[in-house]
């Protein structure tokens, strides 16, 4: 290799590196607002993966495109290319580098996962070989807001045990660790708030604990993320992250309200269809009665 090709290579590599870094910055705009402490960790990890991924992608497609553009045989050239069968050096290099990259990515992901300490996953279910206590780290010191989550086909209900309040919206205090105890009445549902980057399946007959810290006031969306049948798509709820004062004020007001059936999209949609006699679909499980919630 002469100086010219080497410097050309260096220039090309730096250019793709720059482009990849730029992609890494763009990556943040492909994501919803960062509304939980965990979301920042996840986004940084994702951005890192985008940088790495872009670099690999540019390298490979760049080489392929270059070859396609410059090394076509002319129509009448029937000769063969050089019979290169392989190169041990090259093969070792492109085995070892991915191995190192894999260790890097896995190590970084592991670190992020530990810091998230979302704990959620059940401890009872399997024969565990030593429970990793590190995951449950962080939170013990701070005050924790405990809320029960109840999922059924197709509604969410949130129960605040201290005030004995049930609602169909999830209100959360900002900057405070939240611990959810989640249960399902029928099938598997999934608790997913995109703005928090958090997701956990809720298994019937089992209580699953889940922890996180909201850090940004605002209104977000909670989705059911595990397919749960006909009205899966409308099993959504609003999540309101409020200042602590606002939050406790809301709790006291709502605690005085009467319990009434919540407004529930699946239930409404099913009943309107029944009443109007629209039945071009197939028989479906009936939506469960909407939960009784405190009037706000």
């Amino acid at each position: 290799m002469n100086v010219k090709t080497i410097s050309l290579l260096v220039v090309l590599v730096s250019l793709s590196l720059l482009a990849s870094l730029w992609m890494g910055q763009q990556a943040y705009t492909w994501l919803p607002p960062q509304a939980s402490a965990e979301s920042k960790l996840v986004d940084d990890l994702f951005s890192f993966l985008v940088v790495l991924g872009s670099f690999i992608f540019l390298g490979i497609t760049g080489t392929l495109l270059y070859t396609m553009l410059t090394q076509q045989a002319s129509r009448f050239d029937l000769s063969d290319g050089p019979p290169i069968e392989g190169s041990v050096t090259l093969e070792v290099v492109w085995t070892v580098i991915p191995v190192l990259l894999v260790f890097w990515i896995a190590g970084y992901s592991y670190q992020v996962y530990q810091q998230m300490a979302i704990r959620g996953p059940m401890d009872i279910v399997h024969m565990h070989m030593g429970t990793p206590s590190a995951y449950a780290a962080a939170a013990d010191a701070e005050p924790i807001e405990e809320i029960d989550v109840l999922a059924k086909q197709w509604s969410w209900a949130f129960h605040y045990p201290q005030q004995n309040v049930t609602t169909s919206e999830l209100h959360l205090p900002v900057d405070r660790r939240v611990r959810l105890s989640m249960t399902s009445e029928d099938v598997i549902h999934g608790f997913y708030i995109p703005a928090f980057r958090l997701k956990q399946d809720i298994l019937p007959k089992r209580t699953i604990e889940f922890e996180f810290t909201p850090v940004r006031e605002g209104k977000y969306r909670l989705d059911d993320s595990q397919f749960s049948g006909t009205y899966f798509a409308v099993m959504q709820a609003d999540v309101l992250v409020e200042s602590p004062e606002h939050y406790s004020q809301w709790l006291t007001t709502v605690a005085k309200g009467d319990r009434v059936p919540a407004v529930n999209s699946a239930y409404t949609e099913y009943n309107t269809r029944q009443e109007k006699g629209i039945r071009p679909g197939w028989p479906t499980i009936k939506p469960a009665a909407p939960p009784l919630v405190n009037q706000g």
Binding site: T67, Q71, A73, P82, T95, L101
Partner: peptide
């Protein structure tokens, strides 16, 4: 990703300097 990467790189190297 490692054995798969080996294949991908091998394909790129096959095309490289070929008479496409």
């Amino acid at each position: 990703a490692v054995p798969t990467g080996v294949k991908v790189f091998a394909w790129v190297a096959t095309v490289w300097r070929g008479k496409l």
